[in-house]
Amino acid sequence: MSPRFEVCVDSVDGALTAQDAGAHRVELCSALFEGGVTPSVGLMETVLGAAPDIEVNVLIRPRGGDFLYDRHETSAMVRDIETAVGLGAHGIVLGALTAEGDVDLALCRRLLAATGGRSVTFHRAFDMARDPFEALERLVGLGVDRVLTSGQDVSALEGAPLIARLVEAAGDRLVVMPGGGVTERNVARVLRLTGAREIHFSAGMTVDGPATHRNSRALMGGTLSRNEYARRLTSPAGVRGIITAARAEADPA
């Protein structure tokens, strides 16, 4: 059986690229350089209107960094979930941990209550959890639909042994979805090694922007930054290549 494909995007063009390539779902984010944060209301609304033939799951993460949130950040996340649901998002992507590295049950229950029954994915905060199997059981108890993970490693390929054990432990109770460093060259191996039935990737590419006047001295961010005149896009060829490679593994001729 061919797996289901989720593409991580941060633009309308990215969502349209994923839709046109035959992906089943996008995870809509902003600031992928930060690992992804909550997209703006305008971006959510525009993507949902422009790409009606693909499921749109919205990431809810108020900032980069760790996954411990205070009451103000929690209130912001609840409101962002309500907004995404009101705009017609198909699913919500969320996550929160305690200082000890466990799934924060109280906070997650509050966030889940705002989802209106939408599909819920627990994001890669899972990869920072103290005990992945205990975390998995907590997510099952919460009623989460899927968990995104690199197997607590640098990429899904390196983390494949743990992901395979998580897939087995989860059974039909929730979907364990590998993600992190998935490419056309390794997607078949990741699927084969893990036994996963869904896969997450970004297929990003960097292109030069159209600006002709450029100031090379000023930076809009910190010292660790990318070229101000470069754009990170979703690669149509990259998305198609990953999907084709994965389908070839699932349905060999």
Rank of each mutant, 00 (worst) to 15 (best):
T223I: 14
P252H: 08
M205S: 12
V78R: 11
L28F: 03
M44N: 01
A203G: 01
G222D: 14
D13V: 02
G42A: 14
A250S: 13
I92G: 05
V176W: 04
G88H: 06
E168I: 01
R247V: 12
D172Y: 01
R130G: 00
D66S: 08
A230P: 02
T206F: 08
V190A: 10
E100Q: 15
E198F: 05
L97D: 08
T234M: 05
G204Y: 09
T206N: 11
G95L: 05
E137C: 09
G209V: 04
G159N: 03
A170L: 09
L139V: 04
D13G: 12
A188V: 12
R165K: 15
V120M: 02
E198V: 03
A218E: 13
P252G: 06
A246I: 07
L162K: 05
A160W: 02
V26M: 10
R192C: 08
R124E: 01
I243Q: 02
V140S: 08
G151F: 07
T115Y: 02
A51C: 11
T212W: 13
A248G: 10
D172W: 01
L162Q: 02
D104F: 03
D13R: 15
R63V: 00
M44T: 01
I60C: 09
M205Y: 00
T149D: 10
G91E: 10
A113W: 03
R124K: 13
G91S: 06
R71M: 13
V9R: 04
E137I: 08
D66I: 02
T17G: 02
G88T: 05
L68S: 10
M1P: 12
A23G: 07
R109A: 13
F5Q: 06
E168H: 13
L162F: 04
R146V: 01
H72Y: 14
D53G: 13
V41H: 15
V175S: 13
G179W: 11
L48E: 03
N215L: 13
R231Q: 15
S235Y: 05
P236R: 11
H72I: 14
A169L: 09
A253M: 08
D131H: 12
T183N: 05
A21T: 01
M177S: 11
R146K: 11
R109T: 12
V41T: 15
P178K: 04
V140E: 07
